[in-house]
Nucleic acid binder design. Structure first.
Lengths: 140, 140
DNA sequence: ACTCATGTAACATAAAAAGTTTCTTAAAAC
DNA sequence: GTTTTAAGAAACTTTTTATGTTACATGAGT
């Protein structure tokens, strides 16, 4: 099953951006991520819409952080990128009158919902500045 | 992102199988699920390999439960169907020497791992007979 | 022998994410 | 004011992967 690594990539970019004085161009980000500038704009524009980065056109333009890292959480970025479910497991929606299907879906959904809430709660606790510091400390 | 609804579907089938005296053919399961008999065999054979169902060829053949429902958990079926991750979120693996990427991945993986463990623990607690009874009770 | 069913391999289809091309818009440099 | 640089956006192509399909082999019961 295909994974969505945009969260990982965008966090990576945002933390790097914090260490730069100048705006970064989509082209540079694309090179850094081994991808395409248009793909970068598509993804970054989701963050712009939520006010986490801003874009400036023309000479010397590019992307800059619109908020300090300590005001951005993993949850913020995750939410900006997708409304889709966290899980690869899906439910069926076919025999909505079958009590067995209902029971199965309820059982699965119960668990996934709880785990999903856990993820969101934990994501909300991690700001990007903490991430850079605390987790960097864990690396050897 | 595409969802894998095989867990939901197979659980549905297994509980139904319990209420039948006769083996069910792949063709019948396929009709019931609105899919293809070959797809059914592919998926059911994963459960057969783990000993949860057995298949008999020829006249009067088909699929039957190889264990009683109270000996099968959601986890058993989930494990039989995939070794893949539960989450749609993926990590990047490109700048393995970049401490920022490492920190980002560690932060995300930390959370996903904990949530994944929760799901597996909870799946392990639910046997298919309980599912049929307990969750059926919650329906209205 | 004949029929019915699974087992398996090889191929086709479909859907979605990612990549690409092309053009527009806007801002700075000259 | 013209040129250059960069984002914005639309339309299209490619790639990936799960699912569906076809075809044939194997084996069990009648």
């Amino acid at each position: 099953m295909r994974k969505d690594s945009r969260l990982s990539r965008m966090l990576h970019v945002l933390v790097h951006m914090h260490h730069l004085e100048q705006p970064v161009t989509s082209d540079n980000i694309a090179i850094m991520l081994g991808t395409n500038p248009v793909v970068v704009r598509r993804t970054m524009s989701l963050l712009r819409e939520q006010g986490y980065v801003s874009a400036v056109k023309g000479h010397g333009g590019g992307w800059t952080l619109a908020k300090p890292l300590h005001c951005i959480t993993l949850l913020d970025i995750h939410r900006s990128l997708s409304e889709a479910s966290l899980f690869t497991i899906g439910l069926t929606d076919e025999h909505t009158n079958c009590p067995i299907e209902k029971a199965v879906n309820l059982a699965i959904d119960d668990v996934l919902h709880e785990a999903g809430q856990l993820v969101l709660r934990r994501f909300a606790e991690v700001t990007l500045d903490k991430l850079a510091v605390e987790y960097a400390a864990k690396l050897n």
